[in-house]
Amino acid sequence: MKQKLIFLLLVLFITTTEESYSQMAKFKALFLYNFTQNVEWPSNANQNEFVITVIGDKEMAAELQKLAQVKKVGTKTIVIKESSQIKSLTDSHVIFLSSGKSSLMSMLSAEQQENPTLLISSKEGLCNDGAAISFTTVDGKLRYEICSSNIEKHGLKVNTKLLSLGIPVN
């Protein structure tokens, strides 16, 4: 009887909200799209389409796909690619690295050092490993850490608005 009671209590407590999961991914995708509006890629970047590669996060990739259906970056069509590894990722304008792959950021940064690519991490604190932007939460609010030098060393230009709205990281 006691065991049943405990089980019932657990069932009562466990009210997992799928909505909560998707809201975070949805807003991260919206933020990411907005970042692209505030960063300028050099003329030698992929001219045909705007490629966003998502490493290790299916949920994020799905939200970005929804965006890609309704939005463009400039005149370019947005193409979402998924990958489970960091090697051989060419022609990406943006690479988004999931939390589970965060240990690979320094390797990813080295792999992409010659490319005009905006590196974004889902996990905070990765600007020191080469991320241009790291998502974080502050007092229950979604925010982002931003490192201007990590953006500029890939040949990208960032406007002051994006810098001022983020948490600057040296």
Binding site: T16, T17, E19, S20, Y21, Q23, M24, F27, L30, F31, N34, F35, Q37, N38, T137, G140, K141, L142, R143, K161, L162, L165
Partner: peptide, 16 residues
Amino acid sequence: LEELMELMDIVGVSSI
């Protein structure tokens, strides 16, 4: 972006 951030603040990062 600034308005999007305000909307996100209204929704809030879910407790979970």
